[in-house]
Design a protein around this nucleic acid. Structure first.
Lengths: 79, 79
DNA sequence: CCACATTTGTCCGTATGTATC
DNA sequence: AGATACATACGGACAAATGTG
């Protein structure tokens, strides 16, 4: 049984939080350091989460400001 | 002008190579070490490329074997 | 305008694990 | 058993953007 990687699990969790409305589009997510603390991983792992979520357009990053949730309507989806 | 990151440029180039037919679905891509050599970056950067391309389903990775191109018809796309 | 702290952005090197050949 | 190759995670270094004082 191939267990899912931490960075995929964390990314999926964030996706679920936005889809459920727990996190609203435009909301600022915790900082890199805070997320590393929350999920018990390094900031490097959180960066992989961000690369994944950015490719899917689930988040937008603004250097020096923060990371923000987008509208699920704009997400990438299967063909 | 925001300069694009290396890992995004490399990922986009691989996407273009598949879309143009230069790389066919099912083709094996160069190994991590070879790609790092080809593009003049570290294997860590190539891993970021893979995280991005995997999220978009442009590649499939098979541990111990290699990395393979998928059919563009199965890629993620905008809504 | 300048100095500083905070935060994200990118890249690198390394260690360890797992799958394949 | 050994070599090769991908998979994941970590820590560090430096840059760039922002906000505050």
């Amino acid at each position: 049984m191939p267990s899912t990687a931490d960075y995929v699990k964390i990314a999926d969790q964030i996706v679920a939080d936005i889809q459920s409305g727990k996190v609203q589009p435009g909301d600022k997510l915790p900082s890199l350091a805070e997320m590393a603390e929350i999920y018990g991983v390094s900031t490097s792992t959180i960066q992989m989460v961000n690369v994944r979520l950015l490719a899917l357009r689930v988040i937008r990053r603004h250097q020096g400001k923060g990371i923000y949730a987008t509208d699920p309507k704009t997400w990438m989806r299967e063909p």
